[in-house]
């Protein structure tokens, strides 16, 4: 089937999409947007987190056809040109990135948190990021990054 979807503000079209395919597969393999990562394909790790109509979701659990005529925003759509989003900058500066596999999902999820709660408490940060797994950092630097981004917004 054909899927028409707005991705990062651009109208995109994917052809020959299998009806049982996920939005994550479409983004990575058909639209050339490998920012969203594929680690578990079962909603457990959060590395595929994208905005779907402004709500963060696991792209691996959205059927491609459900994204028809919707708006998707991926980690690739957060920066404006070469200017990183404050959340992305904070992740770099705080040393919250090691292998980087979890980073795109965490950045999108943290971005949404700060949009909704400009000055989150530590429990609010932990709660918001509870569905994003990181096997490298031990999370402390990630919490630092979110606090840093919050202080700058």
């Amino acid at each position: 089937m054909r899927v028409n979807v707005t991705v990062n503000g651009e109208q995109r079209q994917a052809d020959d999409v299998w009806e049982g395919e996920s939005l994550l597969f479409v983004l990575r393999e058909r639209l050339g947007l490998p920012g969203s990562k594929n680690a578990c394909e079962q909603g457990e790790c959060g590395s595929c987190t994208v905005y779907l109509d402004d709500v963060p979701v696991c792209a691996c659990l959205v059927a491609a056809g459900q994204a028809q005529d919707r708006e998707v925003r991926t980690v690739e759509g957060l920066a404006s040109g070469d200017q990183l989003d404050p959340v992305q900058e904070a992740f770099v500066e705080a040393g919250a990135v090691q292998c980087g596999f979890c980073t795109p999902g965490l950045v999108v999820q943290a971005h949404d948190l700060l949009d909704r709660v400009p000055n989150p408490s530590d429990p609010e940060i932990r709660e918001a990021l509870a569905g994003n797994l990181c096997r490298c950092t031990g999370y402390e630097k990630i919490l630092d990054a979110v606090r840093l981004a919050a202080s700058r917004r």
Partner: peptide
């Protein structure tokens, strides 16, 4: 239930 992403959906 699950995580924020799961509860959103």
């Amino acid at each position: 239930v699950g995580s924020p992403q799961i509860r959103n959906r």
